[in-house]
Amino acid sequence: MPETTNPPLDALDRRIVVATQAGLPLVPDPYGAVAREAGCSRGEVMERMRRMLSNGVIRRIGAVPNHYTLGFRGNGMSVWDVADDRVEHYGRRIGELEFVSHAYRRPRHLPEWPYNLFAMVHGRDRTEVMEKVARIAAMLGEDDRGHEVLFSTRILKKTGLRIGSG
């Protein structure tokens, strides 16, 4: 399965990951600054980052918004029980919705956990999230064999990706 393959990262890749994971320096020559920290040339930094972009280690290089600060405060994790032979079809359609940031298939654990499709739904408040969830439910129609929306009530721990420390 493609998601479980790990393109190898060598020592320089890892130094570049470490030097960039908290963000690029906001200076006119950010990759030059990263290069000085990683001990290589600017060209090498850009070449390595281009490769990590193309093999999927890096999803994108961009400005990462804090949706919470921007007023998106009602985000909810919706979970759906969809027949196994329909999950691909609906996963793609749900993934295309602009208010869904992540859509994943995950295994059920019967009997306690019947849901096999996860979609993170974004909205400004719970009411808006529930309206959007209702749109997904309407799209699934009879094929919605059950769903729930799990709102988070507290962030108990959140740290960035740690690599290079062990």
Binding site: V17, Q21, N55, I58, I61, V64, P65, N66, L161
Partner: peptide
């Protein structure tokens, strides 16, 4: 924004 930079895909590491 939390940063300007690469978004790593954790699954791949």
């Amino acid at each position: 924004i939390s940063r300007v930079g690469p978004v790593f895909r954790p699954k791949r590491i």
